[in-house]
Amino acid sequence: MSYEMYKDFKETMIKTLKNKTATFAPAAQPTDLESIELNHAKTQTGIDNLQASAIKIPSELPPRITQHRVIFNSESPFALYVVSFLFISCMILSSALYFATRSNYERIDNNLKYRYIKIKGEATLERIAELKELFKLNHNNAKIRQMKKDV
């Protein structure tokens, strides 16, 4: 198709040049037109030779099919390694999250103890031991909630 378009373009160019040279050109310019026609003939024979010796390409090429397959089989060792790696990663991250938040809860409890002692006005050893027992040993949520309300 592009070759046919090239041919048509070339013919229209030659016709245009002939018309322009015939109307405006002096007698010396037809030699230029003759050289253009000679070059055209040489180019045409070169194109014909190329087409004769070129590889024949069928008009309709078969579609190129590219397939990528990813097989995730439970029998393959790769799958076992991936699953075990993900499981171990989840366990490590969840334990790290637990230990990171644990210190925050202790800080919150210590803050509550400090404010409770400050409200009561005195920090005796008995009261500190009672608070330690309330928060650590015998964790009583009802008493802790009441203490938060009081504070």
Rank of each mutant, 00 (worst) to 15 (best):
125 L>F: 14
120 K>R: 09
59 S>N: 13
140 N>M: 01
36 I>F: 06
137 L>Q: 11
38 L>H: 08
67 Q>W: 06
114 Y>Q: 13
14 I>M: 11
129 A>P: 02
36 I>W: 01
23 T>W: 04
34 E>L: 07
105 Y>K: 03
4 E>V: 10
92 I>Y: 03
89 S>D: 12
13 M>T: 10
12 T>K: 14
25 A>E: 03
135 F>W: 02
44 Q>R: 07
92 I>D: 03
150 D>R: 02
143 K>Y: 02
30 P>K: 04
122 E>P: 03
78 F>I: 08
32 D>C: 10
107 R>Q: 08
124 T>A: 02
107 R>F: 06
51 Q>H: 09
33 L>K: 02
119 I>T: 11
38 L>Y: 15
33 L>M: 03
12 T>E: 14
114 Y>P: 12
36 I>E: 03
122 E>G: 07
36 I>D: 00
9 F>M: 09
90 C>F: 15
148 K>P: 08
64 R>T: 15
99 F>S: 01
107 R>E: 10
25 A>F: 04
33 L>V: 00
77 P>N: 12
56 K>F: 15
74 S>R: 09
28 A>N: 13
39 N>F: 15
77 P>S: 15
39 N>G: 14
40 H>I: 10
141 N>L: 11
26 P>V: 05
62 P>K: 03
22 A>M: 09
137 L>G: 04
25 A>M: 01
107 R>P: 13
93 L>H: 06
58 P>S: 02
8 D>I: 14
78 F>Q: 13
